[in-house]
Deep mutational scan, measured.
Amino acid sequence: EPELVFKVRVRTKDGRELEIEVSAEDLEKLLEALPDIEEVEIEEVEP
């Protein structure tokens, strides 16, 4: 069974934007590691 992958769009407080694809596990780590995120948009990517 393929692992869930999420497309994550992040905007930081200083206005930088970042778009990455991460696994569910990595997404959890990412959110814990970035306390200064202003906006996060997450969508599931079809395998």
Results as ranks from 00 to 15, higher is better:
12 T>D: 04
6 F>S: 01
41 E>V: 13
13 K>N: 03
39 E>S: 14
22 V>C: 08
25 E>F: 10
15 G>R: 01
10 V>W: 14
18 L>W: 15
2 P>R: 13
2 P>Q: 09
25 E>I: 10
22 V>G: 03
3 E>K: 14
37 I>F: 13
15 G>L: 01
14 D>W: 04
13 K>V: 04
33 A>Q: 11
29 K>A: 11
37 I>R: 05
38 E>L: 13
1 E>M: 12
46 E>F: 14
42 I>L: 05
39 E>R: 11
9 R>S: 03
9 R>T: 07
46 E>Y: 14
36 D>W: 08
27 L>R: 01
45 V>P: 04
42 I>M: 05
33 A>L: 10
32 E>T: 09
35 P>C: 12
26 D>R: 06
29 K>W: 08
17 E>K: 08
35 P>F: 14
34 L>M: 10
17 E>R: 08
40 V>A: 06
44 E>Q: 12
6 F>W: 05
36 D>Y: 05
12 T>W: 15
40 V>M: 11
37 I>Y: 14
34 L>A: 03
31 L>E: 01
37 I>M: 06
42 I>G: 02
15 G>M: 02
12 T>E: 01
22 V>Q: 00
34 L>Q: 03
25 E>R: 14
38 E>C: 07
3 E>F: 11
18 L>V: 07
34 L>G: 03
38 E>A: 09
3 E>T: 13
9 R>G: 00
9 R>Y: 06
9 R>H: 06
5 V>P: 02
12 T>P: 00
14 D>E: 04
2 P>W: 08
46 E>W: 14
38 E>N: 06
4 L>Q: 09
13 K>S: 07
30 L>G: 01
30 L>E: 01
13 K>T: 06
4 L>N: 06
22 V>R: 00
41 E>N: 09
33 A>P: 01
31 L>T: 02
8 V>Q: 00
14 D>A: 04
17 E>W: 15
8 V>P: 00
31 L>Q: 02
5 V>G: 03
35 P>Q: 14
30 L>K: 00
5 V>S: 08
13 K>A: 06
15 G>P: 00
21 E>M: 15
44 E>L: 15
24 A>P: 05
37 I>L: 08
43 E>L: 15
26 D>P: 00
38 E>K: 05
23 S>N: 10
11 R>S: 03
46 E>M: 11
4 L>Y: 07
23 S>I: 05
3 E>D: 09
47 P>I: 11
21 E>D: 05
42 I>F: 07
14 D>H: 03
47 P>W: 10
34 L>F: 12
3 E>M: 13
38 E>P: 03
20 I>P: 00
13 K>I: 04
10 V>H: 01
47 P>E: 08
32 E>G: 08
32 E>R: 10
26 D>A: 09
21 E>C: 13
21 E>Y: 15
6 F>P: 00
12 T>Q: 04
10 V>D: 00
27 L>V: 04
15 G>S: 01
24 A>N: 03
34 L>I: 13
7 K>A: 03
2 P>E: 06
22 V>Y: 02
45 V>K: 08
6 F>M: 04
38 E>S: 10
13 K>R: 08
3 E>C: 13
6 F>V: 05
23 S>G: 08
20 I>L: 10
18 L>A: 03
44 E>A: 13
15 G>C: 01
9 R>K: 10
37 I>A: 10
2 P>L: 09
5 V>Y: 13
47 P>Y: 09
4 L>K: 15
15 G>Q: 01
29 K>M: 07
36 D>Q: 07
18 L>C: 11
24 A>C: 08
30 L>H: 02
42 I>N: 02
45 V>Q: 08
3 E>A: 13
43 E>A: 09
15 G>W: 01
4 L>M: 09
40 V>L: 12
35 P>R: 15
44 E>N: 08
43 E>F: 15
43 E>R: 11
3 E>G: 11
19 E>I: 14
33 A>N: 12
14 D>G: 04
35 P>N: 14
35 P>V: 15
29 K>F: 07
26 D>Y: 07
31 L>M: 06
14 D>C: 03
27 L>G: 01
35 P>H: 14
25 E>D: 09
21 E>I: 15
42 I>H: 04
13 K>Y: 03
23 S>L: 06
2 P>H: 10
10 V>N: 00
8 V>Y: 02
21 E>G: 02
19 E>K: 08
1 E>D: 11
28 E>P: 08
34 L>H: 08
11 R>E: 02
1 E>F: 12
18 L>G: 01
15 G>D: 01
10 V>R: 01
41 E>P: 02
30 L>R: 01
5 V>R: 15
32 E>F: 09
43 E>M: 15
18 L>S: 02
1 E>N: 13
19 E>W: 15
6 F>D: 00
23 S>M: 06
2 P>D: 06
36 D>K: 03
5 V>M: 13
3 E>W: 09
5 V>D: 01
29 K>L: 07
41 E>S: 12
19 E>Q: 09
23 S>V: 04
24 A>F: 10
25 E>G: 11
20 I>N: 00
